[in-house]
Amino acid sequence: MDEAIRAENVSVIYRPRGSRRLLRQYLQDRLTGRQAEGFYALHDVSFSLGRGEGLAVLGANGAGKSTLLAVLAGLLTPDSGRVAVDGRMSTLMELGSGFHPDLTGWENLRLYGAILGMSRLEVRDRADKIVEFAELQGYMDQPLRTFSSGMVLRLAFSVAVHAEGDVILIDEILAVGDAAFQKKCHRRLLELREKGATLVCVSHVSAMLEPLCGRGIWLHHGRLVRNGPYREVAAAFTDFISGENRHLWDALPDAPVRTSAGS
């Protein structure tokens, strides 16, 4: 099958001193030649995903799910390993970054569309569809600060799913708006997948994920411990959190791998 995403031995190291932002600390570390001890946020992760497939990324908090998404999106360069993503990408992470409360709905729509990589023409053609999908007809001339938070999220989601990337990365945002709107979002994502888009969803285990994602991976303290059909991976992960079949999970480490100090 045609590959849309390929990750080979990807490792990302976080150092607490990575946020060494003050000149004083910078000079201190430079002079002593010391590098702070860190840990692997991702450790030797490899997988691939075919075009048009859906992948759910499961794992506890701090397992490296968002880090993996940032690496796939090209926002974060891994310390080692390689990532190749084929096609135009659109990201649905922290919806509405880039919105400004003083601009009107229309102005924010254009701005966000541009930021997400749509062309002037695409924004113009899809604007009405975007507003209709967000159910915001009649509000768009008002400044965004008069919108409720639900309305803001609906607008952001609607713009993002109309950017129509070949590869769509989604970070825990499937809980947008009320139940009816959530259903609509899922339908739209399914529609995009049927059109050939590849999906990667970071999410909690939920019945709604199943039709969207045929495949699943489970990350545990930065390591990939399961990779297979969504149903199996989700079942294993659920077992693990609920503490069933404990003997199966004894081999799993209970902390991320540390890098040695001074290296």
Binding site: H100, L103, E107, S119
Partner: peptide
């Protein structure tokens, strides 16, 4: 991001600054 859209992003971000 495709190259042809860079001008559009820059224009929108500049407009945003100006309007705000």
């Amino acid at each position: 991001m495709r190259r042809s859209n860079l001008g559009f992003v820059v224009a929108e971000l500049v407009l945003k600054d100006f309007r705000v």
